[in-house]
């Protein structure tokens, strides 16, 4: 029955912190099997939106459904289908990579034998086997992203929600992550990720939404959104960036 539902459906999600409105009513439908990019400048509310969508932050108003299950009313079913890579959140980083994967797997109620096998495979593919028993706290930023992704993938979720998966990742690891995600989508999974790197989004995504000042400004398939221009032009126009006139910061040039 889940096939007729969008992989992720947000309805009127809103959140304010004190007097500052972080997200002002976001509606979004992520079709199953899509590779969905959530674009936005810093402070647009991407992380807040995704946190509310996966049950990490309680919205002031609105709904979030994962394949038809309400994240806030039926969290057990919804969270079972979800894999999440939050940004700016610590992992349980005083475990080694393998220990962390085992923890996540068992926490999801998986069979220990399956956890062992998948963990070994994931560590191998993500080139983390070399780290041995190094604690995750001593990993580099890129390695942390990779182990976080491995934790999100381990239980074979139907929907992956990734917050800035390519931030601080070197090109080799980024290519690896892209490859894994494309195979995941090819196999029927759905990916939603946030980013402000246009190239990555243009290369990977089937669908794009541009978020600015807490609301969705543009939404649709990649081609619908960018039309005959580059995604970057559309983005800058929508967000309302300023172009340098050459007069300011003149003391920077000798």
């Amino acid at each position: 029955m889940t096939e007729e539902h969008p992989a992720l459906a947000l309805r009127g999600l809103a959140k304010r912190f004190g007097t500052k409105v972080a997200v002002a009513g976001v509606d979004l439908d992520v079709p199953a099997g899509s590779f969905y990019g959530l674009l936005g400048p810093n402070g647009a509310g991407k992380t807040t939106t995704l946190s509310m969508a996966v049950g990490l932050l309680r919205p002031d108003a609105g709904q979030a459904r994962v394949l038809g299950y309400d994240v806030w009313a039926d969290p057990v079913r919804a969270k079972g289908l979800l894999g999440v890579l939050p940004d700016g959140v610590r992992l349980f980083d005083r475990l080694s990579g393998a220990e962390l994967l085992a923890y996540h797997g068992l926490l999801r109620g998986m069979d220990p034998a399956v956890v062992d096998q998948r963990a070994a495979e994931l560590l191998d593919v993500l080139a983390l086997t070399d780290a041995g028993r190094t604690l995750v706290v001593d990993y580099s930023a890129g390695m942390k992203k990779k182990i976080g992704l491995a934790c999100a993938l381990l239980h074979g979720p139907r929907l992956l929600v990734l917050d800035e998966p390519f931030e601080a990742v070197d090109p080799v690891s980024a290519a690896l992550i892209r490859d894994i995600l494309q195979r995941y989508v090819g196999g029927g999974g759905t990916v939603v990720f946030s980013s402000h790197v246009m190239e990555v989004v243009e290369r990977l995504c089937s669908h794009v939404a541009i978020l600015a000042e807490g609301t969705i400004k543009r939404v649709g398939t990649l081609d619908q959104v960018r039309g005959d221009r580059s995604l970057e032009d559309v983005f800058v126009e929508v967000v309302g960036g300023r172009t340098a006139t050459g007069q300011e910061l003149s003391w920077l040039s000798r």
Binding site: E99, A102, L106, P112, V115, D116, L123, A131, R133, L135
Partner: peptide, 17 residues
């Protein structure tokens, strides 16, 4: 700085935990 501990893992991931 990262002090890499390259000792090989003993047993599967679950047993290490």
């Amino acid at each position: 700085g990262p002090v890499r501990d390259r000792r090989g893992p003993t047993g599967g991931a679950v047993d290490q935990l």
